[in-house]
Nucleic acid binder design. Structure first.
Lengths: 118, 118
DNA sequence: CACTATTGCCTAGACTTTCTAGGGTTGGTT
DNA sequence: AACCAACCCTAGAAAGTCTAGGCAATAGTG
């Protein structure tokens, strides 16, 4: 809060990771890059946040892992959504949407621009 | 995360409190009621979160307090925004908006409904 | 070969905020 | 008297993110 750096709000990291995996399995490093790209560099994920988050998701059965080789011959741990993971993504997406809309409402910020004229 | 209860995401409590005070000073109890009403009962603020948050805001100079009497003759601690508080509200509102839009973008959720037909 | 940058993974502990689970006083109502 | 609602407070637990390190392997450069 002291500086202007945007921190990941509690609970949204899981959501972003699940979304990152929704198209195809990916390894940690790629997940982090994806989130940055998908948010137009607005959000940045620290290693120290990401890996513990992945372990939690695995423990909860939302993702499963496999060591594989990347296109350029590096070993990497690929994470894939399980059925529970896909459901978790739906549930958490709905929860986030509900939450964010509530906050926007409280802040008096319309989600859609008011049409000009009238 | 285990149950369906909506928790207040880190950082948004301050924002909601500042917004609650943006029209007029209010006491803690009224702030909590305001947030619930303004979010259509979607968000609920616990006492144990609210009062520490108010102290932090006071310490940071964003609000100032005064003991007064309510309309029905109860004593209550009224919180009012300072100039810094008003600025804080603007800054945190912008920050939240930026953040929420980034997450929505990553989730592929359009802020405004796509026009039907076309 | 030496060197560097990038990719890729890991961990301990600090930090911060929210919640849980209590506590209390006062005023109004029955 | 008993009860409820309004109103405030606190200690400690819980949980997730960050800081700040560490390591290994590959690609590219000279």
């Amino acid at each position: 809060m002291a500086d202007l750096r945007q921190q990941i709000l509690r609970g949204t990291l899981d959501l972003l990771v699940l979304k990152a995996l929704s198209q195809a399995p990916a390894h940690g490093y790629a997940i982090a890059r994806w989130v940055e790209a998908a948010t137009d560099q607005t959000l940045h994920i620290e290693d120290g946040s990401l890996y513990p988050a992945l372990y939690r998701l695995e423990e909860r059965g939302l993702v499963e892992t496999e060591w594989r080789l990347t296109a350029d011959h590096r070993r990497a741990k690929y994470y894939a959504l399980t059925a529970a993971g896909r459901k978790g993504l739906r549930v958490e997406t709905a929860s986030w949407t509900r939450y964010a809309r509530a906050v926007f409402a409280a802040l008096d910020i319309p989600l859609q621009p008011v049409p000009a004229g009238g």
